[in-house]
Design a protein around this nucleic acid. Sequence first.
DNA 1: AAAATGACGGTGT
DNA 2: TACACCGCCATTT
Length: 103
Amino acid sequence: MKNSFKDKVYEFCRAIPKGKVATYGQIARLAGKPKAGRAVGLFMRINSDAPHTPCHRVVAADGSLNGYSGQGGLASKRKMLLKEGIILRGSLVDLLRSQWKKS
DNA sequence: AAAATGACGGTGT
DNA sequence: TACACCGCCATTT
């Protein structure tokens, strides 16, 4: 209920536009803790995963899909990203073209 | 208060 | 590109 780091993470997570992806480190940075990427991933995992928060649009710094607690796991995540127009290079996301940039 | 946990990031090999 | 190691952090027990 507080405006804690965790809440900010979810907030930014929801701010990711369709067709774009963000890295854990980027969200952490926006939340004010550039090195808290680890914590960010932790929050994604405990999150309700449902469309409430598009945690599937969050990938690792190199574009690799590390994990997904949602249904289907990584396989489903990859599929969703592809469907949203995000370019996938094998198991890696083409960050050069699909990484979200905060205006 | 201290220890354990984990969907990370960067660097070196 | 893949793998191993270390450093960093918030939350929970």
